[in-house]
Design a protein around this nucleic acid. Structure first.
Lengths: 221, 221
DNA sequence: ATATTTTTTTAGGTGAAACTAAATTATATT
DNA sequence: AATATAATTTAGTTTCACCTAAAAAAATAT
């Protein structure tokens, strides 16, 4: 089949990211995600449905097909491999790489991706803690939740972010809240939903906004 | 100024490659180079002239401005750095990289290019022997000519190619005519303009087509 | 159950970059 | 110098991906 355009790939990726089993994805949600208008989305969804990449029925919300899903995964794979490359090899900062990877993910070449993967040593996670799909689309299961949902007095390891904006990532870096660090969640303040935690024996206070976008894995003690 | 589209960048690059001092570049030549139609070229040339990237006057043939030239150089720089990366780091074959670099050259990010350059060790030549412009657009002078123009009985080192198609490059590889090899040009046959040469004490016969597209540097003996 | 609001779709239009066909200008030939 | 040929430009379409405004359907509230 004819290769997808960059636009089509971006829509497919949006569908992938917005998908939760059982629910159809709305036109509005996709428009918001891609910073475009609902009318444009409707049009594109029809085109992608023609190509059997998703199921579209008027007013019903959209669901990716197996084919659409696996194509989206291959784009996500490229995005995350490039992010890994940019940070590990080229020494860019973790807040600089998303935008560049948004461009690199559309480069078409099987052999390039496979060689890149090998060159990088088949990494399993990208610099933001997101799993990198392998050639078959398999990726390691993530067992994480955001800090705001962790119950008080538990140990956890910072494992990822939900928000990938440079602003948020720079903020985390400034607070030394980087991936791999171990923290203890002390308590959540009902008033402003901020969270108190301890890292390296130092007390730390994080806002609701941070707590909701910072992912951790609970640790057995 | 607004960034150029991929199409605009490709036209600018074509103009750069077809340029020879003193001559205007014709619409037809550009169309052939880009595998497009002359009518499309005219349109685009007007747009690039608006942006002061080249001088355009009806029927006169086009010449890049300083600005257009330096922009073209920055695209060529990216193309050649990526080719170097693909061959030296990812171990792709020299006949595989051009097509991929045609995509990668359009990735927009200052910091990416500079870090890539550093990561690669500021290479001066790409895998096909073409010079890589530095950040200011400077590149090492090339002192080469094609085998068909070398006078008989002279020593030379293979230094580049004029034709970048996979077919030609694979052919060269099969004949072990790779960059850096030293050869002695024996004689040119008037009949079919083929050339006889010696490499590693073995006699070699190359066709007119090869001789015209293989570049060498003459060696002092 | 009806009315209001929100979501989604349709209809019609825009700009970019290509195309074909026809007209125009430049160049080459006799 | 006139004519034939080649190169270039113009005019008019097409496709893609977006847009706005208005209509239609679905969801929500009264």
């Amino acid at each position: 089949m004819a290769p997808l355009s960059i636009s089509e790939e971006n829509y497919l990726k949006a569908v992938f990211h917005l998908y939760t089993p059982g629910e159809g994805i709305g036109t509005n949600a996709i428009a918001r995600h891609l910073d475009t208008k609902p009318a444009s989305v409707t049009e594109m969804l029809k085109k992608l449905a023609e190509k059997k990449l998703l199921t579209y029925e008027k007013y019903q919300g959209v669901i990716p097909t197996r084919k659409g899903f696996s194509l989206a995964l291959s784009i996500v794979r490229k995005h995350r491999l490039w992010e890994y490359f940019l940070v590990e090899k080229l020494k860019l900062k973790w807040d600089q790489v998303h935008e560049i990877a948004e461009q690199l993910e559309h480069i078409r070449s099987e052999v390039l991706v496979e060689q890149l993967d090998q060159y990088l040593g088949f990494p399993k996670l990208d610099p933001h803690g997101d799993p990198i799909p392998d050639r078959e689309g398999k990726m390691c299961a993530q067992n994480c939740c955001c800090v705001s949902e962790v119950k008080p007095n538990s140990q956890a390891r910072i494992s990822g972010v939900k928000n990938h904006t440079p602003a948020f990532l720079k903020h985390l870096e400034k607070m030394h809240l980087t991936i791999g660090k171990t923290v203890k969640i002390i308590e959540r303040n009902e008033f402003d939903q901020s969270v108190e935690l301890v890292m390296n024996d130092r007390k730390l206070h994080i806002s609701k906004e941070v707590a909701q976008n910072l992912l951790v894995e609970k640790l057995m003690k």
